[in-house]
Amino acid sequence: MSRFIIPKHLEVPLGAVLPAPVKEQPGMITGNWRTERPVIDHEACTTCLNCFIYCPDACWHLDEKTEQMVWNADYCKGCLICINECPANCLEPVNELEFPDGVVRLEKPF
C-alpha cells in the first residue's frame, strides 16, 4: 500500500494533462481587461467583416440568420482595433460602466 494519502483538494490529473478547450477557454476569461467596449451601429454596418478579420481574439462573427455582426463580451479585451479598422465608421468606444451587462466578476484573475 502506498504511504501517500492525496487529500481531495490537492488532487491533480496524472502528468498534469488537462482537457483542452474546443471553442472558448472558460479558464481564461479576458472580458475584464476592457475599460471601453466597441458599440456597433447595425444600420451603418456593411458586414465587410474587417472587424472579424482584424480582431486578435476572434470576438466578432457574422450571424448568418440576422446578417448582423455579433460581439463577444466575455473575451473582448477592449483593444479597439476593430474601431480602427472599420471602413464604415459604424463602431464607437463607450465606457464599460455605461452598461449593466457584460459583467464577468471573476473570483480570481488567474
Binding site: L97, V103, V104, R105, K108
Partner: peptide, 27 residues
C-alpha cells in the same frame, strides 16, 4: 485604480465585514 474593474472582478472577495473601498472615478 480604474472604476471599470468593479465589473470584472469580485474585488471584495475575502473582505471581513467593516472594510473600506477606495475608487478612482468621476462617478
Amino acid at each position: 485604480m480604474d472604476d471599470t474593474i468593479v465589473k470584472g472582478m469580485n474585488i471584495l472577495r475575502g473582505m471581513p465585514k467593516g472594510g473600506s473601498l477606495i475608487v478612482n472615478t468621476r462617478r
